[in-house]
Design a protein around this nucleic acid. Structure first.
Ligand SMILES: [Zn+2]
Ligand SMILES: [Zn+2]
Ligand SMILES: [Zn+2]
Ligand SMILES: [Zn+2]
Lengths: 142, 142
DNA sequence: AAACGGATGTTATACAATAACACTCGTCTG
DNA sequence: CAGACGAGTGTTATTGTATAACATCCGTTT
């Protein structure tokens, strides 16, 4: 099951690099901000690059944050699972095959055929759970 | 585990009724459109009502659609699972306790403590799958 | 009476995404 | 070679989603 990968354009590469370097989700406008002065001046360019990268499975869109992250292990999956720390903004991409199967099973019980599954968990990461201990500083998303 | 329910205001009741009557997701601006002429003229009022209803567990926000639906079985859950038909717009709220437990288990492997779990499946409902049979009319979201 | 919480109104603004159209460039093709 | 084509981009404008900030109202509490 080899995945054919189209070569990336200048802008697409640049966007992917920025996301990888950030190591956290960035909004399209965050990216646009970083790309101003490099010849990219308007939203459509950024959105088009992101669209391509998502199509290629190199980037995921986090629906609950309106933001994008570089895929941690580009393996061309229709399903992405994320644990999002509402305190420090850390996002961890999880992979769990049984979960994917279970989700497909649950939905198909009602005759549903899933083509795209998104799972986003909000809460607190290990570090922040340890620190906060029930209550503490207000949540932020960086 | 009885859930204390604050009484709803006029506007909150009205928004919930509109969502229930629609039987499908509505955006905040859809709701605002229906409420103009009833004394509601600006987004904040709608968003505040929605915020309250979501807090009370009577309404869910669909992150991947930027829209809201009335909870099919208001049972005050932190977790909601939705199957969204990209063809006809039908949204089905699923409940599966084992899934919730499995998700908690998967995330807690990495020390994550989830407070809110969002699962949204996109694909085709039973009716549309039967009709389309592999390919057919373009998807729409109504 | 004064303070308070909850809801609302109002204006303005920020943030997210797309429409529509023109242009370039490399590749394929007759 | 000329022309068609696809992918990417630039540009301007617009639509859609959500919140900030501040003022008002009202019923309850003290
Ligand atoms: Zn991934
Ligand atoms: Zn954290
Ligand atoms: Zn529900
Ligand atoms: Zn359908």
């Amino acid at each position: 099951m080899t995945v054919r990968r189209q070569p990336l354009s200048q802008t697409q590469t640049r966007v992917l690099d920025l996301l990888s370097a950030a190591g956290r989700p960035l909004s399209a406008y965050d990216l646009l901000g970083k790309l101003r002065g490099e010849g990219v001046n308007a939203p459509p360019t950024v959105y088009r690059a992101l669209e391509k990268l998502v199509r290629e499975g190199l980037v995921h869109r986090l629906e609950s944050l309106n933001a994008f992250v570089a895929c941690s292990t580009p393996h061309h999956h229709d399903m992405a699972t994320f644990a999002i720390c509402d305190h420090c903004g850390l996002v961890t991409e999880l992979t769990d095959r049984p979960l994917q199967q279970q989700l497909a099973a649950i939905s198909s019980r009602s005759g549903f055929h899933a083509t795209r599954m998104m799972v986003e968990l909000h809460g607190h990461c290990a570090a922040c759970s340890a620190k906060a201990h029930g209550q503490g500083a207000p949540d932020q998303a960086h």
